[in-house]
Amino acid sequence: MARAAVASGDDDKLWAVLREALRFSPPRLMLARSCGQGHHLAQGTADEVVVPAGTTVVVATAAAAFDPARVDEPEHFRVDRPEHPDFLFGEGPHACVARQVATAAIREACKALLGHEFHLSGPLRRDGGRPISFPVGLAPLRAAG
């Protein structure tokens, strides 16, 4: 899907594929913030919580991308899904100021990479059982046929 978008020069389709892939595997799973002043979360609902000033709040941003109240069929990979900029770049006063730059950088890097085949170019290094180095080489993409 992504390679087809690159081959056809469809940057919007490529970004839709990448955005949905990043929803499934985001660069950050959660973030922590310190509450500067007391705040009511979910005020007026059965889930209301008062967060006192100075409290560290951990937000599971990756979980929000799979919240069925916000995302239709969250378990399905759908490139026709409406964009939720807050999933990747935040919103409000903590929104990423470099969103347009980041979007372009991600898309252009993937365009360059998707025009190649990948192969293991050296030994896989491990720390215990966990891989810590996975050297990859690139070769020009061979035409299908």
Results as ranks from 00 to 15, higher is better:
74 P>H: 07
67 D>M: 02
78 R>C: 00
71 V>N: 05
96 C>F: 09
49 V>N: 05
91 E>N: 06
113 L>Q: 07
6 V>M: 05
20 E>W: 08
97 V>P: 00
48 E>C: 08
134 F>L: 04
106 I>A: 04
42 A>N: 04
60 A>T: 13
89 F>M: 11
79 V>P: 02
135 P>T: 01
88 L>E: 02
141 L>D: 02
51 V>N: 11
12 D>T: 07
98 A>F: 02
93 P>H: 05
72 D>V: 09
95 A>E: 01
93 P>A: 00
116 H>D: 03
48 E>G: 02
102 A>K: 08
58 V>E: 10
145 G>M: 09
21 A>R: 01
125 R>C: 07
62 A>G: 04
64 A>G: 05
139 A>M: 12
90 G>R: 09
78 R>N: 13
69 A>K: 14
111 K>M: 03
103 T>V: 14
79 V>W: 12
129 G>D: 07
19 R>E: 06
135 P>A: 08
2 A>C: 02
16 A>M: 03
123 P>N: 07
63 A>V: 15
20 E>P: 00
127 D>N: 04
23 R>H: 04
47 D>Y: 03
61 T>W: 05
50 V>F: 11
141 L>G: 03
46 A>K: 13
82 P>I: 00
45 T>H: 09
66 F>I: 03
19 R>C: 06
20 E>Q: 00
98 A>Y: 04
132 I>S: 00
3 R>T: 00
55 T>R: 14
33 R>D: 08
34 S>E: 13
86 D>K: 13
57 V>I: 14
88 L>S: 01
113 L>A: 02
27 P>C: 04
134 F>H: 02
17 V>Y: 14
12 D>V: 14
18 L>P: 05
82 P>V: 09
88 L>H: 13
97 V>H: 06
95 A>H: 04
25 S>R: 06
143 A>N: 06
47 D>L: 14
111 K>E: 08
103 T>H: 01
65 A>Y: 15
80 D>V: 10
18 L>V: 12
84 H>Q: 10
9 G>I: 07
57 V>Y: 08
132 I>L: 01
27 P>D: 07
71 V>R: 15
27 P>A: 04
93 P>F: 08
119 H>P: 03
27 P>M: 03
107 R>S: 00
123 P>W: 13
95 A>M: 11
124 L>D: 12
90 G>I: 10
9 G>E: 11
115 G>N: 15
139 A>D: 06
139 A>C: 12
144 A>G: 14
55 T>H: 14
73 E>I: 01
74 P>K: 06
